[in-house]
Design a protein around this nucleic acid. Structure first.
Lengths: 244, 244
DNA sequence: TCGAATTATTTTGTCGATTTTTTTATCGTT
DNA sequence: AACGATAAAAAAATCGACAAAATAATTCGA
């Protein structure tokens, strides 16, 4: 949580971020993802002003951006609140990710060149090493795992050639992050190093340019978050898109 | 173009929109789509203040929203500009639309019920009547055609059950609108009533629940804007996604 | 004691002014 | 004339204050 800072500090951090709006955006965003604000919570600008040490303008601009990222909603003359979370919502995120990511993966496998392959191997390696280093111990830095994990999935799609598909996958990934966050701790402990098995398999299918199998596996992989968060009771829960 | 209004007027219109931010958002947005600002043009807050008769705060908030819709871009400490337009950009929009809309259509065809079918027929009817009424005459109200056309495409996907896929198709449709706008006049004249042939065919395939053929046709249909704007020289220009 | 109406308080949305940064213009030097 | 440094102008970002709206509290009458 970002609180109780002196003004001098804030200006430094803001300069680093580029602007106070950017600073506010990043902080509120990560606070929402981390669960510092419960879903549906009211975001009062007066509170935010004292909490982040800024005035209204940059805060409201940051919130406007968060609206379009799906983290915040606004109601006409009664302010901002944190977007709700629900089973249906995660199901929708998952569905959309399956659509976007399998399409992008297909394109990437068709178009990817050597440096795309290299990027995948590098991202896998970093993730793998991090998980090994963790090995059982309670996780102290979840954010880092999140970044490495996202980087790997991004690397898979990097060669798809569509800025918009990539941007949308990033947006959806981040939305899912809020659901992952709560379960991450136990997930990492329960699954442990086994997490990497699936990622390695997926990577191998991709590098072997086995489009169909890779897409099918990715499709299934994306369902894990949902299954772990809400009852593992078979696939029946999740609407099927293209059981490939 | 929205200019030279007295303050009283603006407050009325703003009340209608819900807030000045909303008012600014709508106006700037439609001005960009209509080409009132050339691609890449600088959007200076001072200019916008006099043009729309508002102060900085609601304008900046509106611009923040337009950024996420893809109409505006911002550079750190040097203000806002209208997003550029290019052949590659429209190609990307088209590709993303093909991915999203075919996936959503497939779901809709699987899940759609009677009222979904009714919605499609109604939207088609309205579009058809409008085009007939136009018949050759130079178009005076392009915006209305745009709305009816979008409504028809939305109706096709309405039953897909995914808020996110629907929202993304809407966003992408609007981004493409900027490219359509310039060509629309000549397009309507050249194609005339023939426009409806393809839409009717598409509708019939959908209502017949012929998933594959409908998706294939929609996929091809979405390429028209690109082909009309940039050389009709075969399909080679557009990257193929899933030639279904 | 309950509930409608009125008043007070809080909160949002907006404005005008200030600060900070970038851009343009000016000047002196080689 | 070309270049870099400095000063003036313009523009962006931010702030503190205010007006409009919503919410909470209070009063009054049945």
């Amino acid at each position: 949580m970002t609180e109780g800072r002196r003004k001098a500090d804030i200006r430094d951090l803001a300069a680093e971020a580029g602007s106070l709006t950017e600073f506010a955006y990043r902080n509120i965003r990560s606070d929402i993802i981390a669960g510092a604000y419960p879903p549906g919570a009211k975001l009062q600008i007066d509170d935010l002003k004292t909490r982040y040490g800024l005035s209204a303008s940059p805060l409201r601009e940051a919130l406007a951006r968060l609206i379009s990222q799906g983290f915040v909603s606004i109601e006409n003359q009664r302010g901002f609140r944190v977007s709700g979370m629900s089973r249906d919502d995660l199901a929708d995120i998952t569905l959309a990710r399956q659509v976007i990511e399998t399409a992008a993966l297909k394109l990437a496998v068709e178009r990817g060149d050597d440096s795309w392959e290299a990027g995948i191997l590098a991202a896998y390696h970093r993730l793998d090493r991090y998980v090994l280093r963790l090995a059982g111990r309670p996780v102290e830095n979840l954010a880092e795992f999140g970044e490495l994990h996202k980087a790997f999935h991004t690397a898979l799609l990097a060669a798809c050639g569509s800025p918009r598909l990539l941007e949308e996958q990033s947006r959806l990934y981040d939305q899912a992050e809020r659901y992952r966050h709560g379960m991450m701790q136990s997930y990492l402990v329960e699954q442990g190093v086994g997490i990497m098995d699936e990622h390695r398999q997926l990577m191998n299918l991709v590098l072997a340019r086995n489009t169909d199998a890779a897409c099918a596996m990715l499709h299934q992989h994306l369902g894990h978050t949902y299954n772990f968060c809400f009852g593992d009771s078979g696939q029946t829960e999740l609407a099927q898109t293209a059981p490939p």
